[in-house]
Amino acid sequence: MTDTSDQGQVADAVKGNWVDTLAPAAARPYLRLSRADRPIGTWLLLLPCWWGLMLAIAAEGFRPFDLWIGLGCAIGAFLMRGAGCTWNDITDRDIDGRVARTRSRPIPSGQVTIRGAMIWMGVQVGLSALILFTFNWAAVGLGVLALLPVAVYPFAKRFTWWPQVFLGLAFNWGALLAWTAQTGSLGWPAVFLYLGGIAWTLFYDTIYAYQDVEDDALIGVKSTARRFGERPMPWLRGFTAATVILLAVAAALPLSASGALVALVGMWLMGWHMCWQMARLDIADAGLCLRLFRSNRTTGLIPLPFFAVAALL
């Protein structure tokens, strides 16, 4: 079934997005299934890739192929985020139909069949593989391993109060992959970037989860928001501190003293932005939670120019 009007738009999509206004009507349900109308997820998947690439360039020096790594990561993040969201909606189709914010998604609303969703997921994974195989074999191996946390994540909220950990494992894998694509092997800086990214994911996705905390409680879905209840601030402060410290260690390991100092300024500003989010947070205001969650694109962009300056130094 295809959508021929704006009636199929998803409740939490960006208003006036390009999918609802410019995309062909027949493609809209599939693009919505991939969250193309909600680009923040692509950014959150892409930014750790660019962290890993930029830090590797700062440590190892620039090569022309690095331009392709950066572009390939961007295209791959769009495709694999879409494939992951498609898989998530396939596995969550019964849950999504019982939650106010998600019942308008393409599968529970009847815009896309399960068979159509499976085919669409395969197309996205296949195109991503074509990009992956342009990288070195160590990066290819990491890319294949990345499918494991992607496959497990949708089920995590059924068995643990910490599904955000599994999201972090999947969404920050690009830090490992991009570093390895540039350097040829995995290194400790990439590992610390990865761990710092997981802490950051725990921060932003806990804020996101407060939108659905009441519905989640009714249907028995678990999350850190439900686990923390009315007292998320001590946890959010801890995630902020862990993010800044782990990313600072990642930057300090491979860089010169001057380069590390520049990178540390970037980490401090990133932490400041996370503190700004906490100062504004009202867990009872679902709209505010969504806006703060989306502001994490800025949070993740902050370190990049500092890594670039460190590379010049």
Rank of each mutant, 00 (worst) to 15 (best):
Q164H: 14
F228R: 14
Q124T: 08
A225Q: 02
G220N: 05
Q182T: 11
P234Y: 04
A151N: 01
D212L: 05
A178R: 06
V14M: 05
L79Q: 05
V191Y: 02
A146G: 03
W68T: 08
Q111F: 00
L176M: 12
P48M: 05
P39D: 10
W43R: 00
G229C: 10
C85L: 11
M118K: 14
G122I: 06
Q182M: 09
H273Q: 15
G266Q: 02
T91S: 09
G72M: 09
M54H: 04
D94L: 09
A260W: 02
T206M: 04
F203N: 01
L301T: 04
T4R: 08
T102Y: 00
A117E: 05
L176W: 12
D6R: 14
Q277K: 02
L312W: 15
R98S: 11
L236E: 04
L312K: 07
D20W: 00
I57N: 07
W276H: 12
E230P: 02
A146F: 00
L247H: 12
S256F: 08
A308G: 15
A129M: 15
R81F: 09
L246M: 13
R227M: 15
L202G: 13
T134G: 05
M270E: 06
R297T: 13
G300M: 07
G259E: 02
G8P: 13
T86F: 02
S5I: 12
V19T: 09
T134K: 09
F192P: 08
L176P: 11
A279Q: 13
L288M: 13
I57W: 12
D37C: 07
D66V: 02
F166N: 01
T134Q: 14
N136I: 06
L177P: 05
R226N: 09
Q9S: 13
M121A: 11
F228D: 04
L79K: 03
L253Q: 08
L167R: 05
L261N: 02
V265A: 13
R231Q: 13
L247D: 09
N88R: 06
L44P: 00
T183K: 03
G52R: 06
W51L: 09
W137I: 10
L246C: 08
R98A: 14
W235E: 03
T299L: 06
I131M: 07
R297Q: 13
A129I: 15
F228A: 14
L167V: 15
V144L: 14
G174E: 00
V221Y: 01
A251K: 03
V112Q: 01
V265Y: 01
C49A: 01
R63M: 12
A257P: 01
E60D: 14
W18I: 11
K15P: 13
P64G: 12
G259D: 04
V99L: 04
C85K: 05
L301S: 04
G184Y: 14
A241T: 13
D212F: 06
G287W: 00
P305T: 11
G287Q: 07
M1W: 03
P64N: 12
D3S: 15
G259Q: 01
T240S: 14
L218C: 04
T201Y: 08
T21V: 08
R63I: 00
A27T: 10
V144K: 05
A11Q: 14
M274A: 05
L22S: 10
A199I: 09
R103V: 06
